[in-house]
Design a protein around this nucleic acid. Structure first.
Ligand SMILES: [Zn+2]
Ligand SMILES: [Zn+2]
Ligand SMILES: [Zn+2]
Ligand SMILES: [Zn+2]
Lengths: 165, 165
DNA sequence: TTGATATATGTCATAATATAACATATCAAC
DNA sequence: GTTGATATGTTATATTATGACATATATCAA
């Protein structure tokens, strides 16, 4: 699998400040909401932001272990539980992996585009109350609380490789 | 968790013939496509149709073992690989579980409504080339090959229990 | 019919993902 | 400071899934 060099919307970006900006934003939101943004939780978010790709829980745990922040699975899973519960991080069900949220604001329904070649993941935003799923649900009398939208395919960078000439 | 008594679109239905009809339909499609609908594959499909709910691979394996059709995980996973590859069965990523396809025809993009209370799963049909995901993808230059659409919430049968008066 | 090839199964072993349970520590409110 | 809630450390185990390799069966051509 090729390296994933530009996972945010599959386009390059200035990575210099985006990690610290995102961490600061989450920190502020935690303070505002009375949530404890503890060292482990903060570090897990940082790791995900630094990598800017979907990481498995055990990849994250390896990093934490190297840094002396925790060595057992529950440490990673608890931090991920906290971060995903508050939508600072999302789980990609298709990959059993986690990625930092690419959006700044409070509540949203993320949709992911997952490249099967380079494993890059782009996060788009959708609206839970619009779209076909919502129509189907309301016709059925089903109340949607959460939606998982994940598309697999080829990102713009990998299409040329797979469809030569 | 309450029993799941009516998982097809959350409504009761005549279950008497639907299993044999569905198996016959799949059998015909396998013959037409030159696919081997072997005893294990057939039995796994039957089990899923009989239960009409999402089953984990190991639940299926337990059944196979009881019936002397296989005792090791690869037996179940291989049958499920075959059935999901050809869309006779779908995997519910959110549940790490499998459910028989509720639709008769060849190729489709299923969308699932998953009740968090009774675990019932309804399958609706969508179109890969319409909808917001497709718009986002085409704007991004991403080629969608497959989509995972899973909504979690409360089915019509469980809403009364969760929202009293 | 036979041999060659692909496909499917049986089995053992292990990998990868995730949680239960319980003791200890820290935080937040009073 | 006491207290209750929240977070962490740790051991153990549960759950989900695949690698590897030998054997068997199906398919097809000669
Ligand atoms: Zn997000
Ligand atoms: Zn790619
Ligand atoms: Zn289907
Ligand atoms: Zn329900």
């Amino acid at each position: 699998m090729p390296l994933n060099s530009d996972p945010i919307g599959f386009a390059h970006h200035d990575h210099a400040t985006c990690v610290t900006d995102a961490v600061a934003s989450v920190e502020a939101r935690c303070i505002a909401a009375g949530l404890q943004f503890t060292p482990v939780r903060k570090r897990v978010l940082e790791i995900l932001l630094e990598e800017h790709r979907a990481l498995g829980a055990y990849e994250i745990l390896d990093r934490l272990r190297d840094e002396g922040l925790g060595s057992q699975p529950p440490v990673a899973y608890r931090a991920l539980d906290f971060l995903t519960k508050h939508d600072f991080v999302h789980k990609i069900e298709r990959l059993n992996a986690f990625i930092a949220c690419a959006h700044p604001h409070e509540v949203h329904t993320p949709a992911f585009l997952i490249c099967r070649d380079c494993n890059a993941v782009a996060e788009a935003e959708t609206n839970l109350t619009q779209g076909r799923l919502a129509k189907i649900a309301s016709a059925t009398g089903f109340i949607i609380e959460r939606a998982i939208l994940e598309a697999e395919g080829l990102c713009p960078n990998c299409i040329p490789k797979s469809e030569p000439a």
